[in-house]
Amino acid sequence: MHIHYISENNSILNHFLSQIRDVTIQKDSMRFRKNIERIGEVMAYELSKILTYKEIDVQTPLGIKKTTALEDNVVLCSILRAGLALHTGFMNFFDDAENGFVSAMRFHPNNDDYFEIKVEYQAAPSFENKNLILIDPMLATGQSLVAVFQKLMSEETPKEIHIAVVIATPEGIEYLENNLPDNCHLWVAALDEGLNAKNYIVPGLGDAGDLAYGSKL
């Protein structure tokens, strides 16, 4: 797996990351969503650097300018519901992209810390021979992303596979490396220390879905 750690060099990205973690700032759900969206824009820009481009001629009012334009077809696919704000950030840059959405949730059959991943909803366009970008803010254990990946790959084969996460753990990255193809690209905005006993990211930021859209039953 090709792993890209975006926050290794200081940029405005780290400013946005600090705000989504801050317990006083993140209480403002609108600001939290906007910061996640802006992180998505930064990540989309960095990811765009390795896509394929074609040469084009652009007619200006005063002549012809030779330049380049994106050649790859892109499909953005987010894991509901936490991925929606990050998805918007990617859409702001990949405005011609097709869009898909998949649900994945932790299911606790015994009402204890053990959980399974349920993938119950999928609405996605064809991504055969296209660049598929899977979007999920939090990479904790990695089980949700792998479950969604396996469900999607059972139907079609993309040209390239990119996975974009805001915060990841070493355990989650290791799980992806052991369960996904070597040619996948993983884009990580921030790498955290690890998981606690309940498999939550530490120090993390809390529940991204709840912070963005309110608590759930």
Rank of each mutant, 00 (worst) to 15 (best):
H4K: 12
Y5R: 05
Y5F: 05
S7G: 01
N10H: 12
S11E: 06
I20G: 09
T24M: 10
K27G: 14
D28N: 15
S29V: 03
R31H: 00
R31V: 00
F32D: 06
R33C: 12
K34W: 11
N35G: 03
N35H: 13
I39T: 04
E46L: 01
L47K: 04
K49N: 05
Y53H: 06
E55H: 07
T60A: 14
P61Q: 04
L62R: 13
G63K: 08
I64F: 00
T67E: 10
L76I: 09
I79L: 10
I79R: 10
L80E: 05
L80N: 05
A82I: 01
G83R: 11
L84E: 14
L84G: 10
H87N: 15
F90K: 02
N92E: 04
N92W: 00
F93L: 15
D96S: 08
D96F: 09
A97M: 07
A97E: 08
E98K: 13
V102K: 06
R106Q: 13
P109V: 04
D112S: 14
E116T: 12
V119D: 13
E120N: 11
Q122T: 10
Q122C: 11
A124G: 12
P125N: 13
L134K: 05
D136E: 13
M138T: 04
S144C: 11
Q150T: 12
M153F: 04
P158W: 00
K159W: 07
E160P: 01
I161P: 02
A168V: 06
T169A: 01
T169G: 00
E171C: 00
E171S: 01
E174G: 07
E177P: 02
N178H: 14
N179M: 14
P181W: 05
D182F: 04
N183A: 10
W187N: 02
E193R: 06
P203H: 07
P203M: 08
L205R: 01
G209E: 04
G209N: 03
